[in-house]
């Protein structure tokens, strides 16, 4: 990593904005349009994770609890041991609670 790339990381923020919006709006449109929100969420979350780490779909655990007032979507993704995670656990968890 050279000095130039340090600056570039700070400045190239538009792609982050774009991605955050795409994920968020897919979610919000689903809520308002009353389509299958949890399914949409699941796909979007995995797509985002897959952009940063290679995700083995068989190593992804998805738990879906649909309730009347609150539904739970739990996504457990095994992140291949990176430098920081390598010492401790090899598992990063992500869960989202979504009112349905």
């Amino acid at each position: 990593m050279n000095l130039l790339s340090l600056f570039r990381i700070k400045r190239d923020t538009a792609p982050v904005a774009r991605e955050r919006l795409q994920v968020l709006l897919a979610h919000e449109r689903a809520v308002i349009g009353k389509s299958d929100l949890l399914a949409t969420l699941q796909e979007e979350i995995l797509a985002v994770i897959a952009k940063h780490v290679t995700v083995d779909r068989s190593a992804v655990q998805i738990k879906l609890d649909r309730g009347d007032k609150v539904s739970m979507l739990e996504i457990d993704v095994e992140v291949p041991s990176a430098i920081a995670i390598a010492k401790g656990k090899g598992k990063g968890g992500q869960s989202a609670r979504v009112p349905a």
Binding site: R11, D12, T13, A14, A17, R18, L21, Q22
Partner: peptide, 16 residues
């Protein structure tokens, strides 16, 4: 700024 990737581009917003 859009060309430098500091600001959302027109095509990004149109796509969204």
């Amino acid at each position: 700024r859009a060309a430098r990737n500091e600001m959302l581009k027109t095509e990004d917003i149109l796509e969204i």
